[in-house]
Design a binder for these strands. Structure first.
Length: 443
DNA sequence: TCTGGGGTCCTAGGACCC
DNA sequence: TCTGGGGTCCTAGGACCC
C-alpha cells in the first residue's frame, strides 16, 4: 500500500516547492528573439560542442541532452533548428532576476542551480499554495519573460516529479500540487515517471533497478527499505523515504560557502606548447583566486591538470599536480607561481592538448589563520602587514575589473586578451542585459 | 573535422594509533 | 604454526546533480 508506513516517523505537513525554468537557456535566447517561439532551438556547450539546452520542439525530435552537434547536422538542416553558443553572461543575469522575484515572495529558499530554486511554502501567509504558485509563475513570466513550472509536495523529490507533470499539462498553468491529488492520481503520477528520471537515481543505478523489475517511481517506492539501503546506500534510502512522503533532504537555505572552486575549459584548437598551457593555467588560477576572494575564502590545496582529447586515435596523456600551501591563500600571484612550477613537472612534449584546468579545495574562511609551526610573533606581524598590503592592492584590481566587465588588469603571464585556441563561440547572441554596446535596438 | 563545465556527498580502504 | 581488535582520520574514486 502506498505510501509505505514507516515505523516511528510521523509525517510533518510540509509544503516544499521547486521552481524550474522551462528549457532555461533556450528561453533566455527567446526573450530577445521572440520570433523563435515555437521554433526548434538549441543552445550549445562551450566550444559549440554538445547540445546543453533544447526547446520542446527539439525534444520532440528525439535529440538528447549532451548530443554532440556534429551527430545531428542533418536534423538541424532538415528542421531548420536555430542554434546558439552558450552565453552565460546573459543566462546568469536573467537567472539573477528570476531569483530576486522569488526572494521577494518567500523567506525560505534554496537556489539550487542556475535555473532551479526550492522554496518552503509551509508558513506563507496565503493558505492556497497552488494559487500562490500560479501567481508566482505569472509574475516571473511578465517581469522577465522566462516561463517557469512549479511542483508542490511534502518532499523535494516529489516536488521535482510534480514540476515535470506541470510542464507536460498546459491546463495546469505551470503548477502541480501533490496535495491536490487523490490517492489514484498520486499513484498514477508515480507510475508514469520512469525510475531513471527520479531525482537522485542516476545512470549507474537505473539498469541495476530495471534488472529487478523496478521500472517506475512507484515500483521504487514500494521496494523493501532494507534492500534499498543495502544496494544504494543512504542516498538511495533518502530518495526512497522522500517518495514515501517523508522529508529526508533538507532545504539548504542560508547557503554555505563553496567547498571547492574549479575553472576548466577545453581548447578550441590543438595546444602543444608549454607556453600556451602556462597562459591557460594562469587564466584559470586568476579566475578561481578571484572567486575565492569573492566568497572570502582561502585555499589549502590547488590542483592543476592538463589532458589530451579523450576521443580520437592520437596518443592520449593526462596528468595532474597537487599543491599544498603551508598557509591558506587566495593570492593570484602566489598561486600562479606555484601552479606554473607544478605545470613544468607534468607537461610532456609531443602531445596535442585539449583541456586544462585548476581546482582549489580544502577552503577555509579568510578569518581563520592557521599558525605555521615555525612562525614567531615578529614574522607573523610582518606577514600580516604584507598580507594587508596585498589584499588592498588585489581588492582594488578586483573592483576595477568588475566595473569594466572584463579582466583588464591581470598578470603578464596570462598574455593578450584573445588566444587563437580560446573557446569557439561562433553563434553567440548579444549580452543584451549586461553590456551597453549589445543592448537590444528597437527599430 | 567536430564530444561541456562546475559542483556535492558518500564509501571503501589504507595509515596510523593504542 | 602463529599472525588481536577497535578506533579515527584521510584520500581516491564513484555516484549523483544541473
Amino acid at each position: 500500500m502506498y505510501p509505505q508506513k514507516i515505523e516511528g516517523i510521523t509525517k510533518p505537513n510540509k509544503y516544499i516547492a521547486v521552481i524550474d525554468c522551462n528549457n532555461f537557456f533556450v528561453s533566455c535566447e527567446r526573450v530577445f528573439r521572440p520570433e523563435l517561439r515555437n521554433k526548434p532551438t538549441i543552445v550549445l556547450s562551450n566550444n559549440d560542442g554538445c547540445v546543453v539546452a533544447r526547446s520542446n520542439e527539439v525534444k520532440a525530435l528525439g535529440i538528447k541532452m549532451g548530443t554532440p552537434l556534429f551527430k545531428i547536422k542533418d536534423l538541424v538542416k532538415e528542421h531548420n533548428i536555430a542554434i546558439f553558443s552558450s552565453n552565460f553572461e546573459l543566462y546568469g543575469d536573467l537567472s539573477h532576476r528570476v531569483m530576486s522575484i522569488i526572494k521577494n515572495k518567500v523567506q525560505n529558499y534554496e537556489i539550487y542551480s542556475i535555473d532551479e530554486c526550492f522554496i518552503d511554502l509551509t508558513d506563507i501567509y496565503q493558505s492556497d499554495k497552488s494559487e500562490f504558485s500560479r501567481d508566482l509563475v505569472r509574475t516571473i513570466k511578465t517581469s522577465t519573460g522566462i516561463p517557469v513550472s512549479i511542483g508542490i509536495a511534502p518532499t523535494k523529490t516529489l516536488a521535482k516529479i510534480c514540476t515535470k507533470v506541470a510542464k507536460k499539462n498546459i491546463d495546469l498553468h505551470g503548477v502541480c500540487n501533490w496535495y491536490d491529488q487523490d490517492f489514484d492520481s498520486k499513484k498514477n503520477i508515480l507510475i508514469n515517471s520512469e525510475v531513471g528520471d527520479i531525482w537522485g537515481i542516476g545512470r549507474a543505478n537505473t539498469p541495476k533497478l530495471q534488472l529487478q523489475g523496478v521500472r517506475t517511481a512507484y515500483d521504487f517506492a514500494m521496494m523493501d527499505r532494507k534492500s534499498v539501503k543495502k544496494q544504494f546506500t543512504i542516498m538511495g534510502e533518502r530518495t526512497w523515504l522522500e517518495l514515501n512522503e517523508i522529508p529526508s533532504i533538507k532545504l539548504a537555505d542560508n547557503p554555505e560557502p563553496k567547498k571547492s572552486i574549479a575553472s576548466t575549459r577545453s581548447f578550441g584548437e590543438d595546444v602543444t606548447t608549454l607556453e600556451q598551457l602556462q597562459k591557460s593555467i594562469s587564466g584559470h588560477v586568476a579566475q578561481v583566486a578571484y572567486q575565492l576572494r569573492k566568497q572570502k575564502s582561502k585555499a589549502n590545496i590547488l590542483i592543476i591538470f592538463i589532458r589530451t582529447n579523450n576521443f580520437g586515435t592520437r596518443p592520449k596523456y593526462h596528468n595532474h599536480a597537487v599543491i599544498h600551501f603551508d598557509i591558506p591563500t587566495n593570492s593570484t600571484s602566489l598561486m600562479t607561481k606555484e601552479a606554473l612550477k607544478a605545470l613544468n613537472t607534468i607537461y610532456e612534449k609531443g602531445y596535442y592538448y585539449k583541456k586544462s584546468g585548476v581546482v582549489v579545495t580544502n577552503l577555509v574562511p579568510n578569518c581563520i589563520r592557521q599558525i605555521n609551526l615555525f612562525e614567531d610573533e615578529n614574522t607573523l606581524r610582518k606577514l600580516d602587514l604584507d598580507e594587508q598590503k596585498e589584499e588592498k592592492l588585489v581588492s582594488m584590481i578586483d573592483r576595477y575589473n568588475e566595473k569594466s566587465g572584463f579582466r583588464i588588469v591581470k598578470l603578464a603571464v596570462e598574455g593578450e586578451n584573445k588566444h587563437r585556441w580560446d573557446n569557439k563561440k561562433q553563434l553567440l547572441s548579444n549580452r543584451y542585459t549586461t553590456r551597453w554596446q549589445e543592448i537590444l535596438k528597437v527599430k
